[in-house]
Computed example of a mutant assay.
Amino acid sequence: MTAHIAQTTLVEEAAAAAEGVAGVAFLKPGLAERLRSPLSRPAAHTGRTRPAGVRMTADGEDGSWHVEIQVVVARRARAVDVARAVRAHVRDRLTTLAPTHPTPTVTVTVTGRV
């Protein structure tokens, strides 16, 4: 991929990386997802809606990012192990996609269990 990647692409990649970790049931849905009609359209120019459980902000002048991820874990999984795995997986995925940027800071919050 190119050195400059759109933030929306990185947010989608972070969401996909988090959802791929064993023990993650799903990303925390936002209010819009709870109220949205099943017939509603995804965001423009993307294949899906913007993930509500992921927020990415610029962390400093050096171009670093701070990524906040909110997940709901499966009841059978230890929340701390899942949170650590999500943090490592997301950080590794974003570092692979944008190797010229500083390593992002990733914060994972477990918001529920199902």
Rank of each mutant, 00 (worst) to 15 (best):
A16L: 09
R84M: 11
M56F: 11
E13H: 14
D62S: 06
V54W: 00
D59R: 06
V54A: 02
E13S: 08
E33Q: 08
H4C: 13
P51S: 05
G53I: 00
A77W: 02
A32Q: 11
H66S: 10
A17K: 00
V80I: 14
A44V: 13
V21S: 01
A22W: 12
L27S: 02
T2D: 15
A3H: 13
G60A: 04
E12I: 15
E33T: 05
L35R: 05
R48Q: 15
S37I: 05
A18H: 00
L31F: 08
A17N: 01
S40K: 06
T57C: 15
T9L: 13
E13P: 00
A6C: 07
E33D: 14
V71N: 00
A83T: 01
E12G: 09
A83V: 04
R87F: 03
T57E: 09
T49P: 02
V67M: 03
R55W: 12
P42N: 07
T8I: 15
V82D: 00
P38C: 06
E12F: 10
V24N: 01
G23V: 01
Q7F: 13
G20E: 07
Q70C: 09
Q7L: 10
L27E: 00
A15C: 06
R50G: 06
V11K: 06
A16D: 08
K28M: 12
A16N: 07
Q7N: 13
H45K: 11
S64Q: 02
P29H: 06
R36E: 14
E61F: 13
V11W: 07
A74C: 13
V72D: 03
R36P: 08
P51A: 05
S64W: 03
P38T: 06
W65F: 10
R78F: 14
R87W: 04
T8S: 13
V11N: 06
A32M: 12
